[in-house]
Amino acid sequence: MRFILAVVLLCVAQPVLAQDYAEESLPDPKQEEQAIALMDTLRCVVCQGQPISGSNADLARDMRRLVRERIEAGESPDAVRNWLVNRYGQWISLKPSMNEQTAPLWIIPLLALAGAGALYSRRAKRKGR
């Protein structure tokens, strides 16, 4: 009896409901890969420091859906990122853009590297002498 019921239910049930890409991979693995790479670099607005790809918050879910839908529709990851940056500001992107304000992020490490090189050459004896 139960078996019959199960069969009936299986037949009645529609193919899985409308897609909800908030928690569902895209059918095309290439696109899904792009989407994940993008989601890993978008910051969840209501969480603290996590990317949207790793959060249970509603808004993170919504953004994942948005990202997947737009990628599926053929938008480039950069276009989707810009769309969000235009609304939420640079804050939402975990990948800081290069401009005057973010320059120290790159310059200070370079300076540190140069300083390290200078220190090294000052203290090292020439080989062989």
Partner: peptide
């Protein structure tokens, strides 16, 4: 720099940025 620069930038300019894995 990655951890503290956003803090510095926000303290002095009010500009919010995020620095993450990339």
């Amino acid at each position: 720099v990655g951890t503290l620069y956003p803090l510095v930038l926000e303290a002095f300019t009010g500009q919010k940025i995020s620095v993450g894995a990339p």
